[in-house]
Nucleic acid binder design. Structure first.
Lengths: 188, 188, 188, 188
DNA sequence: CATGAATGAGGGTTCATTCAT
DNA sequence: AATGAATGAACCCTCATTCAT
């Protein structure tokens, strides 16, 4: 990926996270990326496209981290615990990205719908870990979709609350708390 | 409250929920409310104010429902369970409002910050129920803030996923699921 | 019609005739009309619409002049001669409009196609006069469409050439010339 | 002329005739010519220049056809009739070019003025034929400039109307019609 | 000769807000 | 209290042209 495209990406993450999609100005992105405005449009079709590319790359990166991080582990229970840890750390490592992610998923715009489809891939991973845990006898029978969605909900909302300044916890504390809650509610 | 103000409120909820804050047009609100655009500005200072009034009223209404619904109950455990039920039902009864609420809380805009402060009142209620449950020996010791935040996260995210069409559950199923998860993760 | 709309129309004719549709700037139209740019868009949907309204009004005005001017006359021959005179005078009276008319009719843009449909109404009038002249025995048999189109061609091109500075004739001279050519080529 | 220049010319005619000067994009011309955009600017100074070169070549080609076609003929009358036939056929043979020619001659842009100067050469030829016809006693006395301009007007407008789909005639029918009209209006 | 990434001035359109009536 | 015509700053995107390679 060319240097300029990288700079545009970085600037876009910065600006989108600070202002949200609608209020983010292409002028500002260009300025922060130190490229001419036209350069952005040479590489991306539109504001929407640059936004979606960003999200896609971010989610895929997280999914890859999850796949890599859980590969050495054998049991579903271990994988789920690891997955929680990875997600929380990811959120704290890429605060800006997460702020975009979680403030722009809900809505009826075309881009937001495509957006949620990407997230499904992530939720599917969580479902797989839970399902394995159930088959291995570690977890009780629970609705997979609802449970995966719940886990994602706990992680996102507690982390976001912290990042947005309403709560004051470290990633480790949050990881520990979420793992514990999930463990208790799933264990036989 | 005058008839026109009511109509403006109703139209605003409709429009904000369909388009989000930024893409909602004052023209459309005026048209749906069957008032002239100037009339809106006679009653409200700005788009932000009408939006915030809306949110404030909604959250206060939910808080009142929670207070009323839990008043006849004595134990913290019962109150928390009831609170979950009330929140899920509220979300499903006022889908439009909830979509606004949950797609506009995250962000750094002034209105979004004030917005989250309102939500704190709600979270405080949940904390109170949990704290009472702990003191009554029904619940284990747990961080109150993180736990309340988690409960809010589970409820919001699973309900939203359902309303947005990614999941397919009834309010009763979701209530049941959330109550069960929370019960298991809190019980001694 | 409100004062502002009139001013916008006048400014638009001025600007479109000087620069053509594509190079005409809405900023300049607004400035010449002494209104804010937004005001134009309050009254017209788009640049295209203001342009088309202009053309439509102009052509209808010409058609009305033709209808009124030929009403007192009885024979087709007299009507055709009068029609030539009216058109030439109209072109010279409304130079700017004619420049727009004749420099923007040819093309495949949507607006240009709608544009030509308007012109058909004018050509149909000419056809009627010719047809009447034939039935009255003054004119020889000739293809109506081709002849009407030819008359329009002679009038437009000679007048335009004059207006654009390549030729140097008065409206009277042109009228006289065209009438004579047409008379000779149609008479039995 | 190099292969690439030819391809650029061909692509330019195609694109200019489809979209007109203003809406024609250099990107599209480059794409259709299968050259890089920079290559066009290596061979031509600007969009205007490529456009003008095109027109110049086209008009000169038509003038050459007229000169060659009328050379074997001796009388002005015969030459004028032949000239009409040649022009109509040229228009139908090079529809795209003619659409450009006739939709871009009218206007006050620098290029359009230079453009009309080229056309004068063509009109001068027509004038010469008419003048010769008059001297040879075949034609009546008539203003040369106005008559030449009229002939050009009839040919262009009827042909264009046909090419643009408003009329439905063959080149032969149009030639026959124009020749007849002109003959009648010029003969003694 | 040829390329194509990069530029940036420019333009049509939107829309929250104002204010004279 | 209510209106709606008017405003103008703001913004996304286009595209002819340039220039380093």
């Amino acid at each position: 990926m060319s240097k300029k495209i990288s700079r545009i990406f970085a600037a876009a993450i910065d600006v989108f996270s600070k202002f949200g999609f609608e209020k983010a100005k292409m002028d500002l992105i260009a300025e922060k990326a130190k490229v001419a405005k036209g350069t952005i449009y040479y590489h991306f079709k539109s504001k929407e496209e640059i936004f979606f590319s960003l999200i896609e790359e971010g989610i895929n990166q997280l999914i890859q981290l999850l796949n890599e991080g859980t590969k050495p582990l054998s049991s579903g229970k271990e994988k789920l615990e690891k997955a929680i840890e990875i997600q929380v750390n990811y959120i704290f490592d890429y605060k800006d990205f997460t702020k975009i992610l979680l403030s722009e998923v809900w809505g009826s715009e075309e881009r937001q719908i495509r957006f949620r489809e990407l997230l499904q891939k992530l939720l599917k991973l969580l479902q797989n870990y839970i399902e394995q845990g159930i088959q291995e006898g570690d977890y009780r029978q629970r609705d997979l979709e609802l449970t995966a969605s719940s886990i994602f909900g706990i992680i996102s909302v507690t982390s976001l609350h912290t990042l947005l300044g309403q709560l004051n916890y470290t990633p480790e504390q949050i990881t520990e708390h979420v793992q514990s809650m999930i463990e208790e509610s799933l264990k036989k």
